[in-house]
Design a protein around this nucleic acid. Structure first.
Length: 743
DNA sequence: TACAACCGCGTGAGGCTAGA
DNA sequence: TCTAGCCTCACGCGGTTGTA
């Protein structure tokens, strides 16, 4: 059972315990309500993570009207640690209870009305332009010469220094108040000022009028004239209030119309928060592996580090790695400026920058920047900045060094959807935000490696993830094609889905480097990689708390452009080994991967006959054999597959049951660490977003996506009101039709 | 974070046709 | 024969979705 996040738990618990009730310490009272009280303590302190606010020496909270019972403390207040204000005290007011037999309890919660925010510079606007101008002028003037790896480190550090110094000078902390209105604009501000002016005029006119009336009487001409002035001022005030109303309405309408125009079916959910799943609470108590609550930043960091960076690498089989054929070394040509700008052009303007705050949009602006100094001098900074990055990146490869600044990152920990227990670190996915300047270099290298991987046949064609020209659709199409070809040949195919657990962190760097050398990648690049992989640090960001920098050098980082291609290259030798036709008994088995999502396809011709049963039995036999072989090979690379998470499906066009007990077909029994896992065939399974069924009818798939589209359309209705509704048309041609259900 | 695809929009090239 | 106008098509760009 999971409870919603609780800040305060208070009330009449009707339980006495020595922990809070003074009277219970008397002889004979010690064990009273003992079991129930202990259960409460366990629930409140360990499961929910609350502290007891009652003082064990405190005044009784319950004063019975009958003299037969003795007063005691049975009303308790449990409070989340984050809400305790200093030495929080529970105030028990017995006098304030009137006729009740319970005292009035008072306590104070520490609620920060204005949570502190980090200083920032909005992505666009004058502050950003000023910041970029100062950065551009300094970077343009700095043209280092690279003669050693120290020069490379110095240049990268200089860049970081410029960025951080000017950031501190320009960034401001946003002031958010309860009255902040995002739609408020200049027109509203001017109209509000005019209302304030008019109000003041009315007040002054009235004061003057009253003074005249009291000294000269109501019928005096001057009083009457002032009366006209008052009425005019009041009328003016009314008009100006009307103007303010019009201005705010127009501003709101414009603002929200723009929001809707920018929206898309997914973002529409942002406007209707209540339709979303419950927001991840700041009060979910993360637990360590040993069950202890991770209630400090250091423990939280430890919990995530243990989960995301396994410290005990599995043993690897170097013989197998050395047996990989050595390809001739390929020269690594320096990057061209054109190549760099090509890569930069494809980056997203909306992605979140790393710890140096420099985002892709700003880098693009910097490389094209012209700064007007205002005294008639205009400086073209773009070419100098492009030259700086160009020489720096080429020097990184030439000297085989990855600067420290390119290794810094912030790891945002996001909850995985639909998990039952969010107290475990396994329910979270880390996303690593690296500095964009470093990512630029990574992207350049990744493109070169992808090209080589395909041109020289290093990447296996059955690896669909993280490689150019391959998509989930391709993987799905290949599977469907294989199934249909098998059906045409009169065979009944079976599919086994598997998942490499903790793939990126499990990649062993020494093995990867040896593999890259074997695959013919330039020694300069391998030297760079060796430096790139080590000495990486990250700060975890979770529920608003940031940890100190921690070593994060294990495996590959989520969020690095190089990770998909490096992971693909890592398992490529295994895929090559099990390519179709490598071994007679696996002639009709196909393995395909999408990053860490693996699939084994078998359509084995039955040796002794052609009945359905014998074909499926044959499939199961060959799949089991192939799985054990593949698991063994992945294990030799230090990787593992969770056998309990395997999924099996037999693709059959007819309805004839395989047997009375197993109508869908035979199960697979796999052996993992001496434990036998029986995997029963499924009636529906999800592969890379496709819902598959044994007859390839795609009914489940269509139903799922049609439901999704329908719920999106229904959500739109919620955006309307009785005056002005939201229609698909008002979304500015919002492509709702994109939520199609076609397979 | 990466990759892929798709869509709309803008733009420019090129073909066709009517009219000068 | 030339030119303006219209249409179509391809392509790049930016934005969006969906997978890991």
């Amino acid at each position: 059972m999971s409870l919603p996040p609780i800040a305060v738990m208070a009330g009449d618990f009707n339980l006495r315990h020595v922990l809070w009730d003074k009277g219970s310490r008397r002889t004979g009272m010690r064990n009273r309500h003992g079991d129930k009280a202990l259960a409460l303590i366990t629930l409140a302190q360990q499961d929910i993570g609350l502290d007891l606010l009652n003082d064990d020496e405190g005044i009784p909270t319950w004063i019975p009207n009958s003299t037969a019972a003795s007063p005691g403390t049975i009303d308790l207040v449990w409070i989340d640690h984050d809400y305790r204000e200093g030495e929080s005290i529970l105030e028990v007011d017995q006098n304030g209870r009137h006729r009740s037999d319970h005292a009035v309890l008072k306590w104070t919660l520490a609620i920060d009305a204005n949570p502190t925010r980090d200083p920032r510079i909005p992505r666009t606007g004058t502050v950003a332009q000023e910041y970029l101008n100062t950065v551009a002028l300094e970077l343009h003037a700095y043209q280092p010469i690279f003669q050693s790896k120290e020069d490379v480190a110095e240049a990268a550090a200089y860049l970081q220094n410029i960025l951080s110094t000017h950031w501190e000078n320009h960034a401001t902390t946003p002031k958010v108040s309860a009255r902040s209105r995002t739609w408020w604009n200049g027109r509203c501000q001017r109209a509000a000022q005019r209302v304030r002016d008019a109000t003041r005029n009315v007040d002054e006119a009235r004061v003057h009028y009253r003074a005249l009336r009291s000294s000269h009487g109501s019928f005096d001409a001057r009083t009457a004239t002032q009366g006209v002035v008052v009425r005019a001022a009041v009328s003016d005030l009314h008009n100006r209030r009307g103007d303010l109303r019009k201005a705010t309405r127009a501003a709101k309408r414009g603002f929200f119309d723009a929001c809707i125009k920018r929206s898309n079916p997914k973002l529409i959910l942002d406007f209707v928060q209540w339709t979303k799943p419950r927001k991840q609470s700041a009060n979910v108590q993360l637990k360590m592996r040993n069950g202890r609550p991770a209630n400090t930043t250091a423990l939280m960091a430890e919990a995530f580090q243990t989960q995301f960076t396994p410290t005990n690498p599995k043993p690897v089989d170097w013989e197998m790695i050395e047996a990989i054929p050595q390809l001739p070394e390929r020269e690594f040509l320096p990057f061209s400026e054109w190549e760099m700008m090509e890569v930069l052009g494809k980056t997203s303007n909306t992605s979140v920058p790393g710890p140096d705050h420099l985002n892709w949009l700003w880098i693009k602006w910097l490389t094209e920047r012209t700064v007007d100094l205002g005294d008639g001098n205009i400086i073209e900074c773009g070419p100098g900045i492009r030259r700086f990055f160009h020489t720096l990146f080429n020097a990184c490869i030439a000297f085989g060094v990855c600067p420290e600044a390119f290794k810094e990152s912030v790891t945002v920990v996001l909850p995985k959807p639909k998990k039952e227990d969010y107290t475990s670190a396994t329910s979270y996915r880390p996303i690593c935000l690296l500095n964009c300047s470093g990512k630029w270099l990574e992207k350049l290298i990744a493109h070169r490696m992808q090209f080589d991987g395909q041109k020289f046949g290093i990447m296996h064609p059955a690896q669909f993830g993280g490689t150019i020209g391959h998509s989930t659709t391709d993987a799905g199409m290949q599977l469907v094609h294989n199934i249909q070809k098998a059906w045409e040949a009169g065979l009944t195919p079976s599919v086994l889905l598997m998942d490499i657990s903790q793939f990126y962190p499990s990649v062993q760097q020494a093995v990867l480097l040896r593999m890259l050398t074997k695959q013919g990648f330039s020694s300069k690049l391998c030297k760079f990689m060796a430096d790139y992989l080590v000495g990486r640090e990250t700060k975890f960001l979770f529920n608003g708390a940031t940890t100190d920098p921690l070593d994060f050098s294990v495996g590959l980082g989520q969020g690095s452009s190089l990770s998909p291609i490096l992971s693909g290259l890592y398992i490529a030798p295994v895929l090559h080994k099990w390519a179709p036709g490598q071994e007679r008994r696996f002639a009709n088995v196909v393995a395909q991967f999408f990053v860490d999502d693996g699939l084994l396809f078998a359509a084995s011709p039955e040796p002794g006959g052609s009945t359905l049963g014998s074909q499926l039995d044959s499939n199961v036999e060959v799949l089991t054999d192939m799985y054990h072989n593949l698991m063994g090979d992945l294990g030799r690379l230090g990787l593992s597959v969770e056998s309990s998470k395997l999924e099996l499906m037999h693709f059959r066009r007819n309805k004839t049951p395989y047997s009375d007990s197993h109508p869908l077909g035979p199960a697979i029994a796999v052996r993992d660490d001496g434990v036998i896992h029986r995997i029963q065939p499924k009636i529906e399974m999800r592969y890379l977003g496709f819902f598959l069924d044994p007859k390839l009818s795609f009914h489940g798939h269509i139903k799922f996506y049609a439901n999704k589209a329908e719920s999106t359309v229904n959500t739109l209705r919620m955006l309307g009101n009785s005056v002005r509704g939201f229609t698909p048309q008002s979304s500015g041609g919002n492509p709702l039709g994109r939520d199609t259900s076609g397979p």
